[in-house]
Design a protein around this nucleic acid. Structure first.
Length: 502
RNA sequence: GACCCGGUAGCUCAACUGGUAGAGCAGCGGACUUUUAAUCCGCAGGUCGUGGGUUCGACGCCCACCCGGGUCACCA
């Protein structure tokens, strides 16, 4: 950036930077030996009220408040643990060091050393004896005025609220809003808890290819990329499914992966084109086993991360309650859509979809119409945790037919807060049936359904070696994190959500 | 993709039925050796998202476009 593109605020900071250098001080330091975090320092002073100095501390952090009073200056420094007040006094620091105080700006990183004491107004504070500039902030952070409240939290009077800037410049968002860092700490805790849950049940965590010569395992459009060395198009995976089942064939009886999937679709409150998915597979299990596993997983992860048994949907608490409802797909469509799928023909389906204000997809096959009707008529009603069980088989090309009713597949999806959270089935392990179903998908694709699944010969070869009966489940980590943190948008649980280039 | 809302100083926001852009905080200068949204005095800071158009005159009206948010449609 050239000088005339900088704001006058930035110019002022660069002038101070020059002044710092002119005093022989390097404005970007290499290290600082801390003795305490801000919170540890406060704890180290304790609640003594005798007026005596506490221990000397060395703390480092970003300046978030500066109040100059001539020959003294009060400041607040923030680190991930909290805020700590600094008291800089000319008498204590001496002329030279105190001059540096005048060259500090909000946002600068500093390290200070000195004893703790309690000010007249009762705040535990560092009486700064040594001050080091650790990194100059040349660009002003959107730090508003903030005041510590009685309960110890910090009230912001002006802050970064423009969502666009928050997502594009997440570093600024995080730097200014400690509570936002908390959300991402919780996200990490969710992932840790999921791992602990599955590891404790004997699942092996693996990593499978993200770059794939063929994509599969879900109905979605892929991202395409070019593999130069092979002179071939590759795809970013849309699901882990087909590789994890290969591992079941290989004898890894319990296996899971937590990783990014990529789907070439629009983005909204619930969708980011790259998202984090858990998939797990268990040999000798069916979808009933996976249902029990899924409920236990969501309950246990919620408890571990929040210490309670509540999720949050758009800011409203949602108690997890006793055993979750299980409702057959057909019953829900009849209840909310007014259609008996066993009787209704395709025109009737289109009519029901249109009656809900949606536009039936042009030339869509029956499976997609059923899917569409479910989405427009049923999903939003499924706020309390609900397992939707036994899907029409044409919607589920990778699932086994339901015992006793071959029109259905042994499949469930878990809905919470009106959105799908998990999807599972008794995995189809008859290679001939699988080939027939994928071939049918290929026909759909030829008919224009660009989300129909592809036929993967290597996957079928694996099934021909014999895959044991297997239960499989996939669960959206971003969405689970939304429910646990109460965030309304997936962009608030993804550090760098997809945006158009600036 | 459709519709609705928004984009003004570093940040948060004003600006009436069209009259030539303002405040708080941040910044700069000064005063101030226990303040904490410090205070007091002074100063500076803007291609009003972009490009056209209407008008004597546009931040405000019209058109197109860009970016974001929301709702709907589709994938988790």
């Amino acid at each position: 950036m050239s000088a005339d593109e900088r704001s006058f605020v930035e110019e002022a900071r660069r002038e101070k930077l020059d002044a710092v250098r002119a005093r022989g001080i390097a404005p970007f330091a290499y290290r600082f030996e801390r003795s305490h975090t801000a919170a540890e320092a406060l704890a180290a002073y304790g609640d003594r009220t005798d007026g005596a100095d506490g221990p000397a501390v060395a703390v480092a952090g970003r300046l978030v408040a500066l109040r100059g009073h001539g020959k003294t200056t009060f400041a607040h420094l923030a680190d991930p643990s909290g805020r700590l007040q600094l008291y800089c006094k000319l008498d204590v620091l001496g002329e030279d060091a105190y001059a540096l105080v005048g060259l500090l700006d909000l946002g600068d990183h500093v390290g200070v050393r000195g004893p703790l004491f309690r000010t007249r107004t009762g705040e535990v504070t560092v009486r700064v004896e040594q001050l080091e500039l650790l990194a100059k902030a040349l660009r002003p952070l959107p730090l508003g005025k903030a005041a510590a409240k009685e309960d110890g939290s910090v009230e912001h009077f002006s802050e970064l609220s423009d969502p666009e800037q928050r997502y594009r410049q997440r570093y600024a968002d995080l730097a200014v809003h400690p509570e936002r860092r908390e959300t991402f700490a919780k996200r990490a805790a969710v992932v840790r808890a999921v791992r602990a849950f599955l590891d404790g049940r004997g699942y092996l965590e693996v990593e499978t290819p993200i770059l794939q010569p063929l994509y599969g395992g879900a109905s979605a459009r892929p991202f395409v990329t070019r593999y130069r060395a092979l002179d071939a198009d590759f795809y970013l995976r849309i699901a882990d499914e087909l590789y994890l089942k290969r591992l079941i064939v290989g004898g890894i009886d319990r296996v899971y992966e937590i990783g990014k999937d990529f789907r070439n679709e629009g983005m909204d409150r619930l969708h980011n084109p790259e998202f984090t998915m858990l998939e797990c597979y268990q040999a000798y299990a069916d979808y009933g086993d996976m249902l029990a596993l899924t409920e236990a997983l969501v309950r246990e992860v919620t408890e571990r991360v929040t210490g309670g048994v509540e999720l949050h949907v758009r800011g409203t608490p949602l108690p997890l309650g006793p055993a979750w409802r299980r409702a057959p797909f057909l019953e829900l469509v009849a209840e909310h859509g007014g259609v008996d799928l066993r009787q209704a023909d395709d025109p009737r389906l289109r009519q029901a979809i249109a009656a809900r204000g949606a536009e039936p997809e042009e030339g869509a096959a029956r499976g997609r119409l059923i899917d569409q009707l479910f989405k427009v008529a049923v999903e939003s009603h499924l706020v309390a945790p609900t397992f939707v069980v036994d899907y029409p088989i044409e919607l589920s090309p990778l699932a086994k037919p339901k015992r006793g009713d071959p029109a259905l597949a042994e499949r469930f999806e878990l809905f919470i807060g009106g959105a799908e959270l998990a999807n599972a089935f008794s995995e189809l392990n008859d290679p001939d049936d699988q080939r027939a179903r994928l071939t049918a998908q290929t026909a759909l694709r030829a008919a224009g359904d660009d989300e129909a699944q592809t036929l993967d010969e290597d996957f079928l070869r694996a099934l021909e070696y014999g895959m044991p009966p297997t239960g499989g489940m996939g669960l959206g980590i971003d969405r689970l994190t939304m429910l646990i943190t109460g965030e309304r948008s997936i962009r608030d649980v993804v550090l760098f959500p997809a945006l158009r280039p600036e």
